[in-house]
Design a binder for these strands. Structure first.
Length: 208
DNA sequence: GTCCAGGGCCTAC
DNA sequence: GTAGGCCATGGA
């Protein structure tokens, strides 16, 4: 059923071409800026960084924190995110995650302040092409509705469900998560609301 | 005016 | 181990 839902979503929404960014550094920066934040606000912050030639790990390492905070202000939580961007970019100058095994890279990322499960996995999947499935609020909301038992699961338990039922395929993990977010934006916007008028309506109704 | 968005940390039980 | 508060802007 996990793979069936992917095919339905793909047929409905087509390829999503995630992560929407022009460089690896932009993806990494975006994972911090998008924490609990509307993507439109993130785009404004990213554009501010680009307009000042500061949308890179190297530039963020050297820029003054006050200036960085002012540029990312549209994304909200700007003081918090300034600290997190500084911590992450500083960390990345001392290590090349591309050369590390996924589990080790993930453990190192999780030790950086401001990097939780979802952000770490987004960086590994979208910036480093590591085959690891990202669980976000849309995923939790959708699959709690489809498979009520998953309400009992924590992040890594739910992630295990996807790893268990899907082939190890970076491209598939990338596309599936993007499709879940796309679907979440199109439908079921109210929390707890059951899907209707959406492509997996039959499965939703069946499991509810 | 209210609600929400592509989270994570800290504190108190 | 987990519920609740906090961080903040901009659009619907």
């Amino acid at each position: 059923m996990i793979l069936d839902i992917y095919h339905i979503l793909f047929r409905t929404y087509k390829q999503q071409y995630w992560w929407p960014a022009e460089s690896q550094d932009e993806i990494i920066i975006g994972t911090i800026l998008t924490q609990n934040t509307n993507w439109n606000n993130v785009t404004q912050a990213i554009n501010n960084l680009k307009n000042h030639d500061m949308c890179s790990v190297k530039e963020i390492n050297s820029v003054d924190t006050g200036k960085l905070a002012s540029l990312i202000k549209p994304s909200g939580y700007y003081n918090l995110k300034t600290k997190r961007l500084k911590a992450l970019c500083n960390f990345l100058t001392g290590v090349n995650l591309a050369n590390l095994e996924t589990k080790i890279a993930r453990r190192l990322l999780l030790n950086v302040n401001g990097i939780g499960y979802e952000t770490a996995d987004s960086i590994l999947l979208y910036a480093y092409d590591k085959p690891i499935f990202v669980i976000d609020t849309y995923t939790v909301r959708l699959f709690n509705r489809l498979i009520p038992e998953t309400k009992l699961f924590n992040y890594e338990d739910m992630q295990h469900i996807f790893h268990k039922h899907l082939p190890v395929d970076t491209h598939l993990f990338n596309e599936y998560h993007a499709l879940i977010v796309r679907h979440g934006k199109e439908h079921c916007k109210k929390r707890q609301q059951i899907c209707d008028n959406c492509c997996i309506k039959d499965i939703c109704q069946y499991t509810n």
